[in-house]
Simulated assay, not measured.
Amino acid sequence: MAKEAKCLMLRTVARLLIFIFFVAILSGCWDFKDINKRYLPVVMGVDKKDNETYRIILQVPTVKGETLFLEGESSSISKAVDIIRTKAEKSVDLIHLRLFLISRKTAEKGIKEIMDYAVRVNDISIKGMVAIVTGDFEKTLHHQIKPTPEVSSYDYFSEEAGWTPNVSINRIWEAYRSAHSYTEDFAIPLLTAGTTTLFDFKGSAIMRRDRMVGSLSPDETLMNNIFQERYTEGTIEIAKDTSLIIKKASVRNRTEWISSGPKLRSIVKLDVSITESKRDKPNEEIAKDIKNLLEKRAAAISKKLRLLKADVLGNGQLFRPRMSEQQMREWKDKWYPEMQHDITFEINIRDNINFKEKVK
């Protein structure tokens, strides 16, 4: 009898375990929400008003290829988003948020609170992009292109879509890191509403810690991207008669700490191909012209950044092994403005395979 009771108990336990197993499988995701009951914004616009309240605009793509705008305003970003959720007839999920557009006025006051919010909120990807809107913020956020409704604002910052190296790239985690760094600053894309496209890019905003202190032109942005090794297929124009495309770039830096302070020598090697030439110049002359142009442009950018005390090129990162904790804290205010920076370009022109007359 004891043996039969034991077998009965084992069979009962086995049936109970099988029942629990099938219940777990058949239940699926118990907190699943139908996609038709959710808003999935891809862009968040942030503007801080004079009364210190945040105005938040969410761009939500629809199945018809149009854009729906959800708006809220409060003293904090999280509360403004909650207000949007309260007014919306569907659940508002931020898991697909890929781009923060911040007004220039807000960027000049500081974006630290915005980046802190983006990093701390669990459902926002820190791989999302950040850009600054100059001009009419409302017009830019509500701007749509009727002939191509399938184009997303995010595509302009995607390396697999419309991005070019004349536009800077800065992700949420990069902006957050640099805003808290002693030895590195960052550049953020600067844009306005376009006429035939969603955006016109005006270059890049120069950020010192978390505040915008100046700007780089598109040509200067290309130089910055070369130093950041984001040069892919960048085009350089020389005196309106010759254009080249960058095929490969490498930067070698040599640091010294002399009696007067830090000294940096940067050697930039570029492999380029000629894409257009209106005059028959020998390759040696073209290489000399591009070398002189880029060295002059790079020296001007380095000087400009040091005057603004904004280490966008990240030169301070190279000196960290040579600096004490106190020197790192003083880098942007004391040492970086006094840094000597010598920049040399070495140009290698590849065989020109783009000219039709050279194709057999």
Rank of each mutant, 00 (worst) to 15 (best):
L70K: 04
G203V: 08
T53D: 13
N51E: 09
W257N: 15
F22I: 13
D31W: 07
L141V: 10
V251Q: 03
T164C: 03
A299H: 14
F32M: 08
Y182G: 08
T106E: 02
L97S: 02
V272S: 08
S74G: 08
I169S: 04
R279I: 11
F21R: 09
A239W: 09
P61R: 07
K356S: 13
I57G: 06
W335P: 03
K48M: 14
N352V: 10
I286K: 01
R11I: 12
K90P: 03
K263G: 07
E295P: 11
I301K: 07
S181K: 03
R55I: 07
I169R: 04
S125P: 03
N122V: 13
R297G: 04
Q327Y: 08
W163F: 00
N348S: 13
E284L: 12
S302D: 14
D185I: 05
W30G: 06
N36R: 05
F21I: 15
Q144K: 10
L94K: 00
V268F: 06
D311N: 05
K109Y: 15
S125L: 08
I286S: 03
A193C: 13
V60C: 02
D200C: 10
E357Y: 15
N348L: 12
I286P: 02
I286H: 03
R322I: 09
V268S: 06
H143P: 07
P321N: 02
D333N: 15
D155R: 05
D311Q: 05
N352A: 14
S217T: 15
D311P: 02
M129T: 10
A179P: 03
R252D: 12
K288H: 15
V81P: 01
K360Q: 14
A287L: 07
E71A: 12
M44Y: 01
H143S: 04
R38D: 05
Q228W: 12
K291F: 14
I246W: 09
C29H: 03
K304S: 10
W173G: 01
I246Q: 08
W163L: 01
P337E: 01
S76W: 05
L293A: 06
P282K: 12
W335Q: 02
I18C: 12
N122W: 11
F319Y: 04
K33H: 09
Y182L: 11
E284D: 08
Y156M: 07
L318I: 10
L70Q: 04
Q326V: 15
L216T: 01
I347M: 05
T106A: 00
N224A: 13
S74H: 14
L313N: 09
K127P: 13
I18A: 12
V43D: 02
H142N: 11
M223T: 08
I245H: 14
F157H: 00
I188M: 11
L270Q: 04
H180R: 13
G314S: 10
K303P: 07
K247C: 09
L313S: 02
K6V: 10
V46T: 09
L294F: 12
K247T: 09
P147T: 00
K360F: 09
G65I: 01
L293F: 15
L264P: 02
A239D: 13
D219F: 07
N51D: 14
S259W: 14
I114C: 05
V133S: 03
H143V: 07
M44K: 03
K263N: 13
A287K: 05
